[in-house]
């Protein structure tokens, strides 16, 4: 699978890093972790899960029937954990480089922070 990971793939792996989850659980967790920016539908989710299973990044953990509905749980594999860790490290490095560069900005080029309307001074 290509790296860097696409954003939906990154969030699915991150969601499964906590504990095994079923389809609805993954959709809810991804929406929560991405603060609502990423809203997945089942058709998209199961396509992504197929690709992640093919790549060996996730595995089936088990299944149960709740209210007559089949729930299959997925967990992160060892290879998936390693890929997520590598991607997280890559993103961390990018953030550190950008933060350092922003810190070296001169006052003239530093973005102006807007002041609250009606504030004192």
């Amino acid at each position: 699978m290509d790296t860097p990971l696409r954003e939906p793939t990154f969030w699915i792996l991150t969601a499964l890093a906590g504990r095994p989850l079923h389809g609805y659980g993954i959709i809810s967790e991804v929406a929560s972790l991405s603060e609502g920016r990423l809203s997945m539908r089942p058709g998209t989710l199961y396509g992504a899960l197929d690709r992640l299973m093919d790549a060996g990044f996730i595995e089936v953990d088990g299944e149960e029937v709740v209210d007559g509905r089949l729930r299959r749980y997925y967990r992160l594999s060892r290879s998936g954990s390693a890929t997520l860790a590598a991607e997280t490290e890559r993103l961390r490095h990018n953030v550190e480089v950008a933060t350092t560069r922003l810190g070296t900005l001169t006052p003239a080029t530093r973005p102006i922070t807007p002041r609250a309307v009606g504030g004192l001074a």
């Binding site: 389809g23 609805y24 959709i27 089942p42 058709g43 199961y46 509905r69 089949l70 729930r71 299959r72």
Partner: peptide, 13 residues
């Protein structure tokens, strides 16, 4: 193989 699982997820949502 996966129909029941996918339908279950749509119904959950």
């Amino acid at each position: 193989a996966r129909g029941a699982e996918i339908v279950g997820t749509y119904l959950d949502l």
